[in-house]
């Protein structure tokens, strides 16, 4: 299994630096959650790690190899990105998921039995097997998110990057997806990096957090090290109280609401 490391990454958008000399590393068997306010560059950081964006300065290393030296296809064999796309396509679920085999099989050769087995496994693991012949455009938002995840699993990646995997999902599917993601790291040994908005979910499911603010990492480490009232108040710009989760013992973040009634 392979780790991923972004080294001194700088990225500018329209002349403004979005990220400045940022270094981040994720390890096999662990879930790293990137958290931070809106527009702070979480998705940009994920794209830089996936090489769908090129950094202005800095390098991304997949294990020992510099991503810039690898072809797009070689990258895609080891690293999968589940972007925040909404695939409103009239391809069927199985057809979309099968595209995940392209990095291994190429774009011309037909899929072989091994490919089919990987596709089946990805469908089963995401609970999509019963929906395999359905057109993706006819699925619910939650089912579509799972299609994107299944396609990424089909790439048999060592490193899995997920952009807001719980967006548009209801509580049950959020929990399912996060369970699956944690399972992929802890049981299958994948290196998982994801962006999340919900800090309490991040505390529950991630092994390590990276708090991003103003284009730089404010804090990285275990949830109870990163999710402190001080860190969060500064990053999000509002008073925050951190207590202990009554059931799981993880940090529980509550914004301090200034209501006259209380």
């Amino acid at each position: 299994m392979t780790s991923i490391r972004g080294d001194e990454l700088t990225f500018a958008y329209n002349g403004d630096d979005v990220l400045q000399r940022l270094t981040i590393e994720a390890h096999p068997g662990q879930v790293l959650a990137i958290i931070g306010p809106n527009g702070v560059g979480k998705t940009t950081l994920l794209r830089l790690l996936a090489q769908t964006l090129a950094p202005r300065e800095g390098h991304v290393f997949l294990g020992e190899r510099d991503l810039a030296d690898l072809s797009q296809r070689a990258v895609a064999r080891d690293l999968a990105l589940a972007p925040q796309e909404d695939p409103a396509t009239s391809l069927t679920v199985a057809e979309v998921v099968a595209l995940g085999r392209a990095p291994h099989r190429g774009w011309l050769l037909p899929l072989n039995p091994h490919d089919q087995a990987v596709i089946e496994a990805a469908l089963a693991r995401t609970g999509l097997a019963p929906l395999r012949e359905r057109r993706v455009s006819a699925l619910s938002g939650g089912e579509r998110r799972r299609v994107v995840l299944a396609r990424a699993l089909c790439q048999e990646p060592h490193v899995l990057l997920l952009d807001e995997p719980t967006a548009y999902l209801d509580l049950r599917y959020q929990t399912q997806v996060l369970h699956l993601v944690a399972d992929l790291a802890h049981r299958d040994g994948l290196t998982v990096v994801l962006t999340l908005h919900d800090l309490n979910q991040a505390a529950l499911y991630a092994d390590r957090l990276a708090l991003l603010s103003d284009g730089a990492l404010v804090a990285t480490g275990a949830p109870d090290q990163v999710l402190t009232a001080d860190n969060l108040s500064r990053a999000y710009g509002l008073p925050v109280q951190v207590s202990v989760h009554p059931i799981y013992g993880t940090p529980l973040v509550t914004p301090v609401i200034d209501t006259p009634d209380r």
């Binding site: 769908t52 797009q72 972007p83 796309e85 392209a102 396609r151 790439q155």
Partner: peptide, 9 residues
């Protein structure tokens, strides 16, 4: 983005 992440040049 998706096409690229699937390894397409």
């Amino acid at each position: 983005e998706t096409a690229q992440s699937l390894g397409l040049a």
